[in-house]
Design a protein around this nucleic acid. Structure first.
Length: 364
RNA sequence: GGCCCCGUCGUCUAGCGGUCUAGGACACCGGCCUUUCACGCCGGCAACACGGGUUCGAGUCCCGUCGGGGUCACCA
């Protein structure tokens, strides 16, 4: 390498760069067996492909002089350089590393993202290894059912912005507006919550048919619908997706609504919640009386069941909350979920009644 | 340690000398809505690392200090 003088080059993000050659070491570029080392290969490869812009992470900034030295030695013309800031760990400015997963798990937000993914994976019976299935690896997001555009939109804003208000970009807008001169120099830390927010936003805006397409493979993997899904199953999926609405944040979240895909006999009850609700005095009896009204109701749709319930609580002089939680537990097995009347309409009268009867049977 | 980079709310950022009593977003905290959850709506908290200059005037320019980080392989 040169012993004196400076290596000067413009960086499209950082401006004019200057390194003293005297600080550079002589570097090995080829092994005794003839194989080449990274920097030589890199420079030759770039020249070979007629690379005009080398856009890479900041950790390569200090490698640039030696690569320039090699390129010049070989008589290549130099590409333009742009050194991007790297992505930092949540809440720190250390470089994000896939080897430090355990440490990141101490961050609550990161942990939540991870646990949500794990939940989806286990519900979908996907084999996962902690080394590859975690939020620092892109595959994680694909597996859990994130929207690529949401990830991209989040990522483009990590170290770059268009102005003081625009946050949402389609891919076309990204390519149209992105420019290196608005890239920040400092590292930006990965914020699991903000990524999640983008995912939620994009999911909300996704048209129903596309949402159904995204969600179906998860039900198939879980063995809840056929592959391919029958017309009936397809219709069921559409209705569940519609009823679930915003509650489905990632495609894998469909597996939080398995109660609409299992048989009445296979429905699992949240035992803790069940015990709590049904141990109230008169609970079973109350539910039984409302059940009897459901039997003769026609039509059996959301509006009708709601009207029936409201009339029922009115006559009984109780509050809607006194019975609807029992009803939800009985019909869906859970204490949370889609709107109660949507749930019953979805299942239909026979299944709704059958489930109520099954719940009543376990408490008598 | 040498060399290099960076430094505005907790986080991502806007700001390229006056329009900044510093704007937006996520998060957070209140309130409303409500059958659960989610959504939605309204309101709130919260930052220019510090010290010197330059200037009529500095978050914005210069210097220093402090702080954080990257990189120093016959790895890529």
């Amino acid at each position: 390498m040169h012993r004196e003088g400076f290596c000067r080059f413009p960086d499209l993000i950082r401006g004019p760069m200057e390194f003293a050659w005297s600080n550079e070491q002589d570097h090995v570029i080829q092994r005794a067996d003839g194989t080449c080392l990274y920097h030589l290969a890199n420079v030759v490869d770039d020249a070979d492909f007629r690379i005009t812009h080398v856009i890479r992470a900041e950790e390569h900034l200090s490698n640039t002089p030696r690569q320039i030295f090699i390129a010049q030695g070989l008589g290549f013309s130099l590409p333009q350089y742009a050194h991007l800031p790297y992505v930092a760990e949540p809440g720190s400015s250390n470089k994000l590393s896939k080897r430090k997963l355990n440490q990141y798990l101490k961050n609550q937000d990161f942990k939540k993202l991870c646990e949500h993914g794990q939940q989806v994976a286990s519900a979908a019976r996907m084999a996962t290894s902690p080394d590859t299935f975690n939020p620092v690896i892109v595959d994680f997001y694909r597996a859990v059912g994130y929207l690529p555009d949401a990830i991209l939109n989040y990522l483009v804003l990590l170290g770059w912005s268009l102005d003081d208000r625009t946050e949402t970009f389609t891919r076309e807008e990204m390519v149209r507006h992105f420019s290196l001169d608005r890239v920040n120099k400092g590292p930006a830390s990965f914020d699991p919550q903000k990524l999640w927010a983008f995912q939620c936003r994009y999911m909300q805006a996704l048209p129903a048919p596309e949402k159904c397409d995204m969600v179906s493979p998860y039900l198939q993997r879980a063995g809840l619908v056929g592959t391919p899904a029958s017309d009936g199953e397809r219709h069921r999926i559409e209705r569940v997706v519609e009823a679930a609405g915003d509650r489905i944040k990632t495609a894998g979240d469909i597996l939080e609504f398995t109660e609409f895909f299992v048989s009445d006999a296979d429905l699992q009850f949240d035992e803790k919640a069940f015990t709590k609700r049904f141990s109230q005095p008169g609970a079973a009896d109350l539910l039984r009386r409302f059940r009897d009204r459901l039997v003769q109701l026609a039509p059996f749709d959301a509006a009708a069941t709601e009207a029936a319930l409201r009339q029922f609580v009115d006559e009984e002089q109780i509050k809607i909350g006194d019975v609807i939680h029992l009803l939800r537990l009985a019909v869906t097995g859970k204490s949370v979920g889609v709107g109660m009347f949507d749930a019953m309409a979805l299942l239909g009268r026979d299944h709704s009644i059958a489930r109520i009867d099954r719940a009543l049977a376990r408490v008598s």
